[in-house]
């Protein structure tokens, strides 16, 4: 151990010769320790749905059937030697009228007017039909959800320090709890790489949530800033997301009527509760 005062410098070393104290490289004072709990909700960014229609002409997925009818009406006439039975073909309709003629009656030596068979008018009505199959145009309708772009910043005062302190740094321990987790229906909840319920080193800014699109482009960022503003220690919860078109496309096949598929909206809202313990540091100038 050494305690040395020389050349306008005071130095203390330990038994290993390591410097413990040196006025040329001063220790910072910890002027304040602030604790507070803040809860913040990042609001939902909102959504919009869009649909696209693709026509597939003469698609064999959309058959429809109809019948064509052919009618035939036939007539004929004939003489039936029977007074009672028609001479028309079976199943035809017939109209018969008696046929009379004069016949000589040798008993009475006179002519008599007697029935001799029938004259028939015959008619037949037939219908034939044919099944016809044709194909109509079909449509694929796809629907997709897009998360609307949004930027927000909300500031909270964690605590105040004595005027005139003019601190040099903050050391922040924060205990995070994400009580509701936002996300999208295609990617699930946003990744939050903060261990819940433990003292996390949260100096400066902390990345609370991030999300990337299929091209590896970051489309959503949420951060927490802890900083000094005058005599206040503040926390900014900042959110930014660009419009994000989700990967989970819904489709609906239509044959005749245009129907739109059901597209689920996403809820991007997350809520964080943060227990802060903040050490306020001040160096000798």
């Amino acid at each position: 151990m050494s305690f040395v005062v020389e050349n306008n410098n005071i130095t203390v070393t330990n038994s290993l010769g390591d410097v413990v104290f040196n006025t040329d490289t001063p220790m910072p004072h910890i002027t304040d320790v602030l604790t507070n709990t803040i809860t913040h909700t990042f609001l939902d960014s909102g959504d919009s749905q869009s649909y696209s229609t693709f026509s597939t002409f003469q698609d064999f997925n959309c058959p429809y059937t109809y019948f064509t009818y052919d009618t035939n009406y036939e007539t004929s006439s004939c003489y039936s030697s029977s007074d009672y039975f028609s001479c028309c073909p079976f199943s035809w309709s017939s109209y018969c009228s008696p046929n009379y003629e004069f016949q000589y009656n040798f008993t009475y030596s006179s002519f008599e007017f007697v029935q001799n068979g029938q004259n028939c008018s015959c008619s037949n009505f037939t219908t034939t039909f044919e099944t016809v199959t044709e194909y109509e145009d079909s449509y694929y309708v796809t629907g997709v959800n897009t998360v609307s772009a949004k930027d927000t910043s909300d500031t909270y005062i964690i605590g105040s320090i004595t005027a005139g302190t003019d601190p040099d740094f903050l050391l922040v321990l924060a205990n995070f709890s994400r009580t509701t987790a936002g996300g999208t229906t295609d990617l699930g909840t946003f990744v939050c790489p903060i261990h819940q319920g433990a003292s996390t080193a949260a100096n400066g800014s902390t990345v609370l949530e991030s999300a990337f699109n299929y091209s590896s482009e970051q489309w959503l960022s949420r951060i927490l800033d802890v900083y000094i503003d005058g005599n206040s220690i503040k926390a900014d919860f900042k959110h930014s997301n660009k419009a994000y078109t989700q990967l989970d496309v819904q489709s609906q096949f239509n044959c005749e009527f245009l129907l739109f598929p059901s597209v689920s909206a996403s809820n991007t809202s997350s809520t964080f509760t943060v227990d802060f313990t903040i050490y306020v540091g001040k160096f000798t100038q």
């Binding site: 220790m27 772009a149 482009e217 960022s221 800033d225 930014s240 660009k242």
Partner: peptide, 26 residues
């Protein structure tokens, strides 16, 4: 003890924000 080191510091401490978000990016 933690001490100021202007020449070869192991760490830097700050009282400012260290990040920003805009356009969805970070």
């Amino acid at each position: 003890y933690l001490r100021r080191d202007n020449t070869t510091p192991d760490f830097y401490v700050t009282k400012e924000k260290t990040a920003d978000v805009s356009g969805g990016g970070l």
